[in-house]
Design a protein around this nucleic acid. Sequence first.
DNA 1: ATGCATGTGATACACATGTACCATGCGAAT
DNA 2: ATTCGCATGGTACATGTGTATCACATGCAT
Lengths: 201, 201
Amino acid sequence: MTGKVDHEKRRRQIAEALLRIADTEGLQSASMRAVATEAGVSLRLVQYYFTTKEGLLLDAFARLGTQLQARMQRWIGEARAPREVVTAILSCILPTDAESRRITRTYTAYYTLVLTDAEAIGKHGVSQPDLLESFLVKQLRAAREAGEIAPERDVEMAAAGLLAMVNGLGQSVLGGQRDGEAALAILTHHLDELFLPSAGG
Amino acid sequence: MTGKVDHEKRRRQIAEALLRIADTEGLQSASMRAVATEAGVSLRLVQYYFTTKEGLLLDAFARLGTQLQARMQRWIGEARAPREVVTAILSCILPTDAESRRITRTYTAYYTLVLTDAEAIGKHGVSQPDLLESFLVKQLRAAREAGEIAPERDVEMAAAGLLAMVNGLGQSVLGGQRDGEAALAILTHHLDELFLPSAGG
DNA sequence: ATGCATGTGATACACATGTACCATGCGAAT
DNA sequence: ATTCGCATGGTACATGTGTATCACATGCAT
């Protein structure tokens, strides 16, 4: 019944079980046993493939980051004009469909951990927001040079503000204050004020 | 050694011990025993004044809300012009000093709970963001009628965007992406673009 | 003085958790 | 055929958790 199994496949199976639990019930419910059951394997196997719980947590977190990155590239890939790229970057994070709702919720579940166990998980994902922000700055700068944004606009400030706004909007959607469409409308409204009236999505 | 003790005083002593733990180590470390030790009382007393842990969690959460509200009124009280009031509302939430850092961190600690145990804690604090937003809308509308904001501006959209931005900026500060002053600078920049150039703090 | 409610202490209980340990089946190399 | 390492199952152990229970002291009303 044994015979050289695909380690990566098993690890993914287990890690995604954890992410599923983190999404639906929160990370505090993601015990080793719960993950094992959700993944359909024995507790021993979870230990076997991820010696410690911290290892499992870290690996699953890395996978979550990869998933978000993949989604973002998929969304950006469909964009052509600079404004479309910017819109893609920002609205892709918003919890408007099932996938982004899942990713956002799960990220939020991890967020608390990052704040208290900063040294453990922190160093793995803290650079990502900065990378995203500088990428957004680059896109905004390109849009400004293409004449889609007024030249006197400060794109660094705009990028930081938009990113923070999108995060905050995501929070409000998850908290039930408004739905995804309303959040997207707010984002679009602010993009309308940043970009000059002309071409656009 | 007994003799009619002040219940409210004891409850506050214990609830604030929990908030202190939630701030520094996160809510997952706030066990009944840890709270008892932090408050300098026996485990039995925590049980006595808050029968169940959920009760303690809820009471402490309510107190946290009160603290934030008090801070906001204190900040607003020093403001005179409409723009100053708006600035006070928004920057008061930003983790720029020790108090707001504490409040923001602790709120974040609760946020995860609200997402998973929505029915329990949710109904107690979910209305507050909406109230805050409509209050901000009212202030912005007043500012617009006072000629401090261009008449074609959509104040509802602006209010929602600003509030979300401030929340997102707070997240980034807590996550160590930037410090409180940088966050405040980003907020100020956006307020500069919303308000017409004239008077202001 | 007695009894009862209030405030406080110590401890027990049942359960969940992360991890460690022992056992077994199976393929491959010797 | 034996041996060895990989993959897996089962289970034990120590600890931490929320809550319940027993015990005792003190103040107030009778």
